[in-house]
Nucleic acid binder design. Structure first.
Length: 282
DNA sequence: CAGAGGAACGCGATTACCTCA
DNA sequence: GATGAGGTAATCGCGTTCCTC
């Protein structure tokens, strides 16, 4: 089953460094299949008895030709299709140190992935049942749903979380790692698309505003050419600004110490005027 | 303490495979 | 059935961070 864009479950935020107006885009799907799957409490053990049942059911619907038993063999790196798991006594990795909400007791064994083994080794024949070319293993719907749910909680996993998730889904840790990598890439791509769209809208609005102002300026120039009318008006091209608060003063704020400045739209934006094309829509 | 070397990891780019119209 | 497009799992190369010596 293909996973469409609506299945991505992206919750995107767009923020500008200066304005801090996040543009929230909630592309979260309303998938009933996801709701049936339990979220991972990372501070708990993954495989409980109920988990085991789910694991069994997951394996039943697993379309991939994975090894039927994904157990301790994988942790020791004996029969892992794409990855070799090595254990190191010392040297905590970054993800664990940064506390990706994992950890807990029994962290004396740091389980890490040796990715070099997944990049073209002699184990590949074993990996794909004797075939030399790499096989594209499409993840099942439920596997994807669990991965999505997990990704919503943490977009990165520490090695233990990775292993536990892999074990639960009947995948290799490397597959989980790859899925998270690709998922992060998709999220970023989606975010870039959103950014582009938003900037395009900004450009359109600015262009429109520019056109309007040019038109207005042309009209004012035309008025200037007719002295009778012009004499009745105040100069349109200068505005008054309070030097202390730098707020553009209106006609009534005559008590401010005023000076003439040219109007900058960015200044207006900073003061929250109606010129708000850079403000994301809520 | 500074620096070299290595391991682990993440990311961007790309490839290869699969599904569907 | 052939085919092209789109999605995505998998791979590769590189940079970064951290740890050990």
């Amino acid at each position: 089953m293909m996973m469409g864009k609506e299945d991505l479950g992206l919750s995107l935020s767009l923020g500008f460094a200066q304005n801090h107006h996040p543009l929230q885009l909630n592309l979260k799907p309303t998938s009933s299949s996801i709701s049936n799957l339990q979220m991972f409490p990372w501070n708990q053990t993954f495989v409980s008895s109920s988990d085991h049942q789910k694991q069994q059911s997951l394996r039943k619907i697993d379309v991939n030709s994975l090894p039927t038993t994904v157990d301790l063999e994988e942790e020791t790196g004996v029969s892992s299709p794409n990855s070799t798991i090595s254990s190191t006594v010392s040297g905590k990795r970054r993800s664990e140190r940064e506390g990706t909400s994992g950890g807990g007791a029994g962290d004396d064994l740091d389980i890490t992935l040796d990715r070099s083994s997944s990049r073209g080794t002699s184990d590949e024949e074993e990996d794909y049942g004797g075939e030399t070319c790499r096989k594209k293993l499409r993840l099942s719907k439920d596997q994807s749903a669990v991965l999505e749910d997990t990704f919503k909680e943490h977009n990165t996993l520490n090695p233990k979380q990775k292993l536990a998730l892999a074990k639960k889904l009947g995948l290799t840790a490397r597959q989980v790692e790859v899925w998270f990598q690709n998922r992060r890439a998709r999220t970023k791509l989606k975010q870039t698309e959103v950014d582009c769209e938003y900037l395009k809208r900004c450009v359109e609005k600015l262009t429109e505003e520019n056109r309007r102002l040019e038109k207005e300026a042309a009209e004012l120039r035309a008025l200037k050419l007719s002295p009778r009318l012009y004499g009745q008006m105040s100069p349109p091209t200068t505005l008054l600004m309070c030097p202390s608060c730098e707020r553009v003063a209106g006609p009534s704020s005559s008590n401010h110490n005023q000076r003439s400045v040219s109007l900058s739209p960015w200044l207006q934006m900073a003061h929250g005027s109606t010129f708000d094309v850079m403000r994301p829509r809520s």
